[in-house]
């Protein structure tokens, strides 16, 4: 039995792309801690990393760049995995983590607390609450009569999302002018808000581990609810798990970095074009690639026109859109 199992088809097929992505992740993290408004030479960086170096450099590397890079990695990974899950759940390769209104709910939560002049921690907290309220509302409404088709879920989500959109516009319209930049930057998504990278990284790790054994069931679910049920998948339980997981992932991402666009849509989609549709490969690959993309985007956002800053969401779009179009074009 063991002899047979050693000649598995799938594993070697996973190792190469995941190693490449891991290297890429490492490279972007390295770039993120070596670049910034202050230039630190390699020798100085080495001193810092080996426990010495100038105090300013230590502060820059350990208190600013590293936590921010890890937050970017965490948020990017969360969004990409959430996007990959949403796409399977809705059987729609164009779904993104925000399609069901989560980011809208989070934004309304965050903007409300900004309007009330609450602290940054309270802004994060209310963003999380907003996202969860949105997720539960969509879940309850779509699920109402018992049948839960992707179309029904999608429609409910899209309507709720546009409701949040109106609420956001309203809040922007009535806010005092000095509050507006903060609100707009939050809506564009920005790593400057990241407080600690750990919640994002821990949630990313936990949910990835939970999703690992479900990977093959996801592949089956991707063929349709009926087919999946006929192949022994408890469809409803699996769909709820995916929905809850994707909601939590998105909520933590939004709390970490505001609503950053494109990562959740483009990363899983790009990976599918290159690596195929095996979710067991796509999910860990999305965690790495999404994390790497956002880390790179954030590094560029804070260095391109330093000391002035760009919103990271702009850079993810600038990197993501052409790459995506190229891949789409190449794949016939």
């Amino acid at each position: 039995m063991a002899a047979v199992k050693t000649s598995r088809g799938a594993v070697p097929h996973f190792i190469l792309p995941l190693s490449i992505l891991a290297l890429l992740t490492f490279a972007t993290l390295a770039l993120a801690i070596t670049t910034g408004s202050v230039s630190i030479s390699n020798a100085e960086l080495w001193q810092v990393l080996s426990g010495g170096g100038e105090p300013l450099h230590r502060t820059l590397v350990f208190e600013l760049r590293l936590p921010r890079a890890l937050s970017a990695f965490g948020a990017g990974g969360l969004l990409a995995v959430a996007g990959a899950l949403m796409q399977v759940l809705l059987r729609n390769p164009l779904a993104d983590p925000y399609i069901l209104g989560l980011s809208g709910g989070a934004a309304v939560g965050a903007l409300s607390s900004m309007l009330l002049g609450l602290s940054a921690a309270a802004v994060s907290g209310s963003a999380f609450i907003g996202a969860m309220v949105s997720a539960l509302t969509v879940f309850g409404l779509a699920h109402g009569t018992g049948s839960w088709t992707p179309t029904r879920l999608l429609l409910t989500g899209v309507v709720i999302a546009s409701g949040w959109g109106a609420a956001i516009t309203f809040m922007l319209a009535v806010s005092p002018s000095d509050q507006l930049p903060g609100m707009l930057y939050w809506l564009m998504g920005d790593l400057a808000y990241a407080r600690s990278p750990w919640p994002a990284l821990i949630v990313l790790g936990l949910i990835s581990i939970i999703m690992l054994p479900l990977g093959r069931s996801l592949n089956v679910l991707a063929r349709g609810q009926m087919q999946a049920a006929a192949l022994g998948v408890s469809v409803r339980a699996l769909e709820w798990t995916i929905y809850i997981a994707a909601s939590l992932l998105t909520a933590f991402a939004v709390v970490t970095a505001g609503s950053i666009g494109f990562v959740g849509l483009i990363v899983p989609h790009m990976l599918r074009l290159v690596l195929g549709n095996d979710q067991r490969l796509i999910l860990p690959a999305a965690a790495l690639a999404g994390g790497a993309l956002l880390t790179l985007a954030d590094t560029l956002a804070r260095t391109l026109i330093a000391p002035e800053q760009l919103p990271a969401g702009v850079i993810t779009a600038l990197i993501g859109v052409p790459t995506f179009l190229y891949l789409l074009h190449r794949s016939r």
């Binding site: 910034g36 408004s37 202050v38 820059l60 600013l64 930049p181 930057y185 330093a306 000391p307 002035e308």
Partner: peptide
């Protein structure tokens, strides 16, 4: 930051540390 091109500008912590 008097020499920045725009009237108001978004910067990062690092720039403040650098300017000290």
């Amino acid at each position: 930051f008097g020499g920045l091109p725009n009237l108001s500008a978004r910067i990062d912590n690092e720039a403040v540390l650098a300017a000290d």
